[in-house]
Design a protein around this nucleic acid. Structure first.
Length: 257
DNA sequence: ATGACATTTGCAAAATGA
């Protein structure tokens, strides 16, 4: 089965791209981020017409996450991470999909470094660390899919020097990501492509797409029993070059079963 | 770089992104 994470940068602005992606790739599970719409503005009728079933956690203007399934339907487990009842951002949704647990997450960007936005990013990652540990304790196949807003290593960005001051590359950001990984998760893209650059995001500005100045920030983390079923992983890069594309490309893993 | 470009809100220009 093909499980995809796709930061759409506005579900309504991206509707033609989103619908053609479903039509062409027919993913079993599609995790979306940056819906940028309130729940009442979610294009439910257009999604229903595809035959996919969706659960979503929207927010007016920014954020917003969803999980869509081709067969059956996602059964909601939680919206929002535990650990901060005052957090109003719609950045996490988790569901049962068949025998899998699947999360669609949109980790805070955190720029600029040294502000409360960066502190919020690190605090959110600490809450994710705790929740990820609880998920592992269930000893089930789990996929943590999303826009992590983390460049794990210098190999994962076109210019570590140019981006050295960015929140996505900070040592604290990378340490927090590694701490989660080392709980026992498998980074599916790196497992399949152990060497070299493989990007999932290209900024709209400065001709970044045209000169392949990208970042690897969309990740699919597999629990041990999900990793046992690992088949393949990749980036549907071609979609980034289409008309009115998102600045992210769909990023995927295939699992047995 | 208070930058580039894109999206949303709301109807101008600010917020957000990475």
């Amino acid at each position: 089965m093909k499980i995809v994470t796709y930061n759409v940068n506005g579900i309504r602005a991206r509707l033609p791209r989103f619908l053609e992606y479903i039509e062409e790739q027919k993913p079993d599970v599609l995790c979306l981020q940056e819906l940028k719409c309130a729940d009442e503005s979610f294009p439910a009728a257009e999604v229903a017409a595809t035959g996919y079933k969706a659960i979503f956690h929207g927010q007016k203007g920014f954020n917003g996450v969803a999980i869509l399934t081709r067969d059956g339907e996602p059964v909601l487990r939680r919206m929002g991470l535990p650990g901060d009842p005052d957090d109003t951002h719609s950045r996490y949704i988790e569901a049962e999909v068949g025998d899998l647990v699947i999360a669609s997450l949109y980790l805070p960007n955190g720029n600029p470094v040294g502000t409360e936005k960066f502190a919020y990013k690190l605090a959110w990652m600490e809450r994710l660390r705790e929740h990820a540990l609880a998920l592992l304790a269930e000893e089930r196949p789990v996929v943590l899919a999303g826009d992590w807003n983390v460049v794990p290593t210098d190999e994962d960005v076109f210019s570590p020097k140019a981006m050295a001051h960015d929140a996505l590359l900070q040592p604290e950001t990378r340490a927090a990501y590694r701490t989660i990984l080392h709980q026992g998760w498998t980074d599916a893209i790196r497992a399949r492509h152990p060497e070299g650059a493989i990007y999932t995001f290209w900024d709209y500005t400065a001709g970044c797409w045209q000169r392949d100045a990208g970042f690897r920030i969309d990740h699919l983390l597999l629990s041990p029993s999900a990793a046992d079923r690992f088949l393949d992983a990749g980036v549907d890069k071609e979609y980034r070059g289409r008309e009115k594309a998102s600045d992210h490309a769909p990023t995927w893993v295939t699992l047995e079963g």
